[in-house]
Structures are given as structure tokens and as C-alpha cells.
Design a protein around this nucleic acid. Sequence first.
DNA 1: ATCTTTGAACTGACCAGTCAGTGCAAAAAG
DNA 2: CTTTTTGCACTGACTGGTCAGTTCAAAGAT
Lengths: 202, 202
Amino acid sequence: MDTQSSRRQATRAKLYEAAVTLIAEQGFSATTVDEIAERAGVAKGTVYYNFKSKTELFEELLRHGVGLLAASLREAADQTERQGGTRVEALDAMIRAGLVFIHRYPAFTQLYVAELWRTNRAWQSTLMVVRQEAVAVVEAVLTEAVNRGELSEEIDVPLTASALVGMVLVAALDWQAFQRERSLDDVHAALSRLLHGRVGGC
Amino acid sequence: MDTQSSRRQATRAKLYEAAVTLIAEQGFSATTVDEIAERAGVAKGTVYYNFKSKTELFEELLRHGVGLLAASLREAADQTERQGGTRVEALDAMIRAGLVFIHRYPAFTQLYVAELWRTNRAWQSTLMVVRQEAVAVVEAVLTEAVNRGELSEEIDVPLTASALVGMVLVAALDWQAFQRERSLDDVHAALSRLLHGRVGGC
DNA sequence: ATCTTTGAACTGACCAGTCAGTGCAAAAAG
DNA sequence: CTTTTTGCACTGACTGGTCAGTTCAAAGAT
């Protein structure tokens, strides 16, 4: 990577950073390009030099963010694998990785949740791709667990994956928004208990 | 109720109905008052005759919707109580009630999720109140379950409540958006299994 | 020499909120 | 019974402001 393009990378990173915060706080339509440029410490012209439009900036932001998340989930699953852990342990590790990600990028998560189920939006198809990328990682581990006999074959993989993702997503966002004082370990312990069936008993 | 005020009620209902769909699809800022009026089949002026502003219309919509949800959850819990069910059974009934509600009012749910964790918004305080109303019902049943010895005292009530709500919310929205063909019973069974610990096994 | 950024000016579409006026049903006056 | 008045509910053209996107000449970086 030459110095020119890394300079561009840096500018784009500043714009992502500014946009993600503002859009998480206010929503896409309520956020102006002037605001994004100002927060990024960059001229408005620079935004349009680096991105075709406001919408395209947002779409690339989504791709960029979910790429990080999926990588982090996969990393957690693989590491458990390498250490000879069970697939249920891998799920637990992924829950923690999810919490760490949300803790580090709360704005991105907020924005993702706010946009995911909207219909009729320009970036609808981008979101579908990006969602599948994340959910697929969870589904893969669930399927493996079933194949290895760690989990009952009666489990509904897609629905269970959704439910697990939702559990982590909502608990983490609530933690960030309304229960800041709790530690990551507290939150992880509560979710882990639910995963391992120590809530509703057996 | 005289003819005048029932006419107003009808107009307001039409406006709620129009607004909830449009805002769920497009978001608050991207939805114009002209669109809402047109979809409701009234003139723009009528919106401002019935509501102080676009924001106030939205806030009253939120209050109205969460009122319905909280009532429906409480109803499920109470009915289980009356039939002598355990508190864990009550939680299961509430999960189903939640799914039924989301199935009936998907647009409202979408919109609630999209706005809940936004900061710096005008209706922030309305949302806090409204969220508490719904979460409190779940927390109450969890606390009762702990008091009666049905659940371990080590359970973290607020976090577990968040996680349960998130599980239902995300699974239901994913069901509506991406897996329309599944039946309510399928979804309920998958969530119930998670609640009763038949996923991570004991 | 080439790539990237700046910043200010401009355009045209779009939109929240306003307001003078219409329609109508029920009450009051004749 | 008929006419007039009252005021609620609604209408839609209009206004003042905002914002995405464009343009471009000049400056800065490599």
C-alpha cells in the first residue's frame, strides 16, 4: 500500500468514525453531510471526493463494520476449536466476542439494529448480505454442534441462531444504554447461564 | 362520546395507522407529514389540528403501542397464575404473547427497536418510560420465580430480562422479515427450548 | 507531475409548520 | 317550522428554511 492510498484510507476511516456516531445518534436522514464532514475534521468536498454519495458512504460503512464483527466471531470459534473445546463452548466464546465487539463499537451496533428490519430502503440489499455474513457464522457452529451430537437434532438452527444473536444484541445494548455500571463479565455470566439452560431449569 | 369527538378519535386512529407503517419502513426523519396525511386520507392541516407536531404524533403513537404490549404481557402472566401454573410457565406464556403481538403489529415493533437505543432524540424520555413499562412486567415475573425458588437466586434479573426480551424481539422480527413461512408454533418452540435449557444442555 | 484535500458559493428539490377559509351539524332566535 | 348563529373539524396553498449534491480554483502532500 503506497503512501497516497494509505492517506486516503485514513481520511475514509475518519469519515466512517464520524458518520457511524452521528447516524447512530440521529438516524440516517437526520444526519447531514456537513455535520459528518465537520465531525471528521474534513472539508465537505472531501466527502464527495472519497464517496459517490451519502448513501454510498453509509453502505460501505455497513460492510466495513460487519466485516469486523464476522471476523471477530469466527476468530472466537476457531480459537475454541484449536484448544479442543466443544461447540457449545465455542458458542459461549462467540457470545463473549459479540459483547466485546458491541462494547467497542456501540454506535455501529445501534445503527445496525435500527436499520436491519426496515423495508424499502436503498441499502436493503446490502444489509441482507451483511446480515447473512454474521448470522451464518452462528448457524455454522450450531450445525456442527448438532452433527457432533452435542445438541439435540430437534433444534431449529436458523431460529435458534436468531434468538441467540438477539439475546446478545439486546442485552448488550441495554447494558450500554441503561446499566453502564455492570462489568462485561456480569453480562457474559447472565447470557452464559441462559445458553447453558440454568435459567428455566431442565 | 358525542359524534364530534368520535369523529376525532377516528381521524387520530387513521393517522396512527398511517404513521406507524411509514415510520417503520423509512424512519422518523425520512417520513414526511405530507405522506402520513396522504396515506391516512386527510389533509395536512388535519395532522396539525390533531397533534401539536410531527414529534408529538410519534410520541403518542409510542405510548399507545407499548400500552397494548404491556397489557398483553400482563394478561398472559395473570392467566397462567389463575390456572395455577409455575412462574417459568408464565414466562413461556409471555414469550408466546410477545410473538403474537409482534405478529399482529410488526410495524410498531420495528419502529420501537429502531428508536430505542438512540441517544439525543427529542422523544428519548418518552421511550425510557415506555421501555420500563414493558421490561418491568418481565422483571416482576423473574423476581417472583426466584422468590418461589423456581429459579436460582444467582440469576441477574435485569440482565436476564433484557436477554429474554431480546431473544423474542429479534427472533420474531427475523421470522417476519426473512422466514415468513414458519408458523408461530415453530418460533415459540425454538424459544421455549432455549428458555428451558434444552439447547446448551445440562 | 500527480493525487488528494480545501472551502466557499450555488442550485434546486423538499419539507415542517401556518393560516385564512370551507362545510356542516346542532343550538338559539324568531 | 324556518332562519341565523356558533364553533368544531378539516382543508390545501403558501412560506421560510434546510440540505444533498455540484463546481472549481487554489493549496498541500508525495
